[in-house]
């Protein structure tokens, strides 16, 4: 089964995935119209910041067993085995935040949502673009990512690519070429700046 795979070393922190995610989970599905919707659609993927101010697309790993599911008091969090996705039933959710204590990745947020009962704050997280998948479309965050920091592929394919990359890098005489020399240059200088601020 294909799934969204995160390649953090490629993230440039543009946050386009967040916009696309929020729009994909809006009523209108259009970024331009979504901004005036009530409740305001919010992203399920969160571009966090690393210690060197590098971007990091943080989204639900759909763990199995899922700690949030085990911690959920009203049993609102469940796994749909067919799509290998952990989902939250907004009607059952009581907004107790027990899942906030449980999620080791910090990807659950609490707010009103287009699919929740109006006016009710609920726990919200990535649903692997359940709705788009039914329309045979790939998840919105992947579609928006121009640098392949988010890919939609089988775990096996991604693993093979990564294994090949590592194998090549350890070959005798192999040169470790930077993924993008310009991005590496920028990050090196940024790191100097940050280390000067935080000695």
């Amino acid at each position: 089964m294909k799934k969204v795979i995160v390649h953090p070393e490629r993230c440039v922190g543009c946050m386009q995935c967040m916009l696309a995610c929020a729009a994909a989970h809006s009523k209108t599905k259009s970024l331009f119209l979504a901004v005036s919707e009530k409740p305001q659609p919010k992203p399920r993927v969160h571009v966090g910041v690393g210690l060197y101010e590098e971007g990091f697309p943080n989204r639900c790993r759909h763990c199995n067993p899922a700690p949030c599911q085990l911690a959920c008091l009203p049993g609102a969090i469940f796994r749909d085995n067919e799509i290998d996705t952990v989902l939250i039933d907004p009607d059952k959710c009581i907004n107790c935040a027990s899942c906030a204590m449980a999620c080791p990745f910090g990807v659950i947020r609490y707010h009103e949502d287009a699919v929740a009962p109006p006016g009710k704050t609920v726990a919200v997280k990535c649903d692997n673009c359940y709705e788009r998948r039914q329309q045979k479309r790939i998840p919105a965050c992947v579609e928006a990512c121009m640098v392949a920091a988010l890919t939609f592929e089988t775990e096996a394919a991604a693993m093979k690519r990564k294994t090949d990359e590592i194998s090549r890098s350890v070959s005798t005489g192999a040169e470790t070429a930077a993924l993008s020399p310009g991005f590496e240059l920028l990050n090196t200088l940024k790191k100097v700046q940050i280390e000067m601020r935080n000695p």
């Binding site: 440039v12 543009c14 910041v49 640098v147 991005f183």
Partner: peptide, 10 residues
């Protein structure tokens, strides 16, 4: 503002 957009930074 962190992370700042890498496209723009570059």
């Amino acid at each position: 503002q962190q992370p700042q957009c890498g496209f723009c930074e570059m």
